[in-house]
Amino acid sequence: MAFDAEKEIGKVLRGLRAAQAEIGKTYYRWRQVALELAEDGVDPLQVGLRAAERFGKDIGKSMLPRLHWLKGEAAFLLNLGRAMAGLWNVDGGVATAEKGEKPTEVFIKCTRDPWPTWAKEFGVSMKEVALCREKMLKSVLEDVSIFFNIPLDLEVQKAIPRGEGMWLIRLYKKEE
């Protein structure tokens, strides 16, 4: 069979990487348009945070059909953590979710994040990148918390855009 598997896989990967790069660039192009159309004096950070909230809520809704309570609370949290880590992975990052010491917590670790690189190309501050990611993830939790009737929250312990080498996020169930 005259078929060069390495060549074919390389072609697929190049296509994937190009599509991933477009994700970030497209977002920042639209951010630029929003700022140009906005009234004078609008705070770019607020625009970014509003967009992050919208993305997060929509992603949260899309997670609802895929999450379930069949294996209990700890498994639910781990699945949710994995789904949130997956948000980086589809963009070209590297992220995982691991169980914490308590059954009501999960840690999301991201060691490679493409967003700061894309942000630099468009002159966006690292502070905005960090805050927007946090806002987006918290917005994901809103509908998930209501739908499954479980109060969820997260805290960012480390962030790549803050120069801390990795993202470390604690996802946990709030004390009622």
Partner: peptide
């Protein structure tokens, strides 16, 4: 209650 929809 305003529980979100799972199916869009």
């Amino acid at each position: 209650s305003a529980v979100p929809q799972r199916l869009r």
